[in-house]
Design a protein around this nucleic acid. Structure first.
Lengths: 336, 336
DNA sequence: CTGAAAGCGCTTACAG
DNA sequence: CTGAAAGCGCTTACAG
């Protein structure tokens, strides 16, 4: 056996003086009662000595399953998706599945030359299912006829979905602000064509319209500190300056903070600001940010549970996860 | 052909009235000159109609290669690793390779119950190589005898490595602070047993020792805003309070900001603070953070280049990437 | 308790 | 221009 070739189960069999099927039985843990303990030991020793590792492509082909799932996330990954992964991987591990992440280039983040050219080479990997997070439905075209679950997307679509109740969260936020006395709202909206942002915008508009004397102005920007600062600045420079800036993302709220400071406005005395997500950034900022917490880890966990049901031939129930208002120090009654 | 089974190239062949090998030739793009255009068209139509997609496990087994690489990153993923991925994926795509991410649970981030149990189920996927980012060498045990390149790790190790010149960066930072007049340094150090942090600590200690009258105190913490705030607080409460807090990470610098504010210290007037990485956070903070920029995207790109050389049978040169000082508004001369 | 054999679905020489 | 066949390295009935 030349050194250059990676050892196969056949090599191990030869070294141990048994048949290749015995090797497979032993290393697959299916030997008790079928192979003598002595033989099993010999086989394991030989495998160890040769540094044998099974060829996964062969196993996958034979079994017709890989027990691994692809988690597709937007490329400019935030800590949010780390949590989504953790939740998904925990559930998967309990069922003997692995999870691998495939970043999908999107135009959500700061302008990125590479992101223009569409997706990178897709993985040449055999996978059993796809979990597509916070992305356009077109992702699924890439993995068509692979069982898939969408995360944080329109539950009304054809694909099983686990969504956040973002509209609820936005309504709770608007109620909080309304109770503080705010009437002139500014919406620093993400310029991203995704269900979750449409939901947020719609819910905010409806809530403000329902408020006696309520008014809403909007500026859109990329999910990016500098762009959000710019957009927030446009709102703050209006003659009828809003008393609160509702931002579609914690990162955008950081931009709003900077726009306010640049104009000598103190938060929350002169201006209230809110975010969305409850990222680490929310408590890194000063004052700490009032925001809507999206339970990222649960999103991953519930998404994986739904996907495993789907792989099991069942039809997962649509799931909705609570979006909870977290009041911190960036909101206060408007200055009169 | 029952509806339940996924179509194979054999099904396509039957539908098109040709042999299975012809199907393979046509769909693999190797038909010109070997199959008539008319037949090729028929085959493609049949494949389209049946919704045929090749079985990747079979292809991988047959070819003995998957042309996909695993990028292993620490689980509590920051935006940093998004950039590493982008760089790696760009280079990979130019060579017909795909990249898939495998988050490795570590104890770097905030305490996470799930992270205690060691790695999640590893991917059952056949891969050609591994790019292991900012992680302990033990990661490689999991993928032993798979060609691997380490990122941001000790270049003196056995595995080919692409490292940042973090010691250079730290020295530049210390020189900047020394020139401003700082002598009493506090180091808010990451309690993480990794080469990159040992380098930072060593370089800082040496630079301060070389400064006439220089003194250094240190507190360690997890890479986490709350923990870093606590550690920074311990330093600030000392009778010989440092005039500058050098933090091992931008996120930790955010904690130092909070500790300073809690004590009524204004940055940079009463206290200078520095970070490391130049994450989005660095410019989200107020005042904007003086830090050391680590070119994450280049790390991914150079790492992939090295890995492709390795897969090609060559021995990659050790590579070192510059770590550049970025002076912003959080550093100033110490108050006298 | 052990082995010989089939077969997962591809790609690619090889023969015609 | 087209097809029959080998073989990648496994797992798992099946026979002994």
């Amino acid at each position: 056996m030349p050194m250059t070739r990676r050892p196969t189960s056949r090599d191990v069999a030869q070294a141990a003086g048994v048949s290749q099927s015995t090797v497979s039985l032993v290393l697959g843990g299916k030997w008790p009662g079928r192979v003598s303990p002595a033989t099993a030991r010999t086989v394991r020793r030989a495998a160890e000595r040769l540094g044998y590792r099974p060829n996964l492509a062969a196993r996958n082909l034979r079994l017709g399953t890989t027990r691994t799932v692809l988690l597709v996330v937007p490329t400019p990954s935030s800590t949010f998706f780390g949590s989504v992964y953790t939740g998904a991987a925990e559930v998967a591990a309990r069922h003997g599945f692995g999870v691998v992440v495939y970043p999908w280039p999107d135009d959500t983040g700061p302008g990125d030359a590479s992101a223009q050219g569409g997706p990178f080479a897709s993985p040449r990997e055999a996978i059993d299912g796809v979990l597509a997070s916070s992305l356009a439905v077109e992702v699924l075209k890439e993995f068509r006829d692979t069982p898939a679950v969408m995360l944080d997307n329109d539950p009304a679509g054809a694909t099983p979905t686990v969504a956040f109740a973002v509209a609820d969260g936005m309504r709770a936020l608007a109620a909080h602000l309304g109770a503080l006395g705010h009437r002139r709202f500014g919406h620093v909206a993400a310029a991203v064509d995704q269900w979750t942002f449409h939901e947020r915008g719609g819910a905010l508009a409806a809530a403000v319209a329902a408020l006696p004397g309520g008014g809403l102005v909007r500026a859109t920007s990329a999910i990016d500190v500098a762009a959000a600062k710019e957009a927030a600045g446009r709102l703050l420079d209006r003659p009828d300056r809003p008393t609160v800036l509702v931002c579609d993302d914690d990162l955008m709220a950081a931009g709003a903070y900077k726009a306010a400071r640049a104009r000598g406005l103190e938060i929350p005395r002169d201006l209230s600001v809110t975010g969305f997500d409850d990222d680490v950034l929310a408590t890194a900022l000063e004052p700490e940010l009032t925001t809507v917490r999206l339970p990222a880890r649960r999103l991953g966990a519930e998404g994986m549970t739904a996907l495993l049901e789907l792989l099991d031939g069942r039809t997962p129930e649509p799931r909705s996860l609570p979006a909870e208002l977290v009041v911190r120090a960036s909101t206060a009654p408007p200055r009169r």
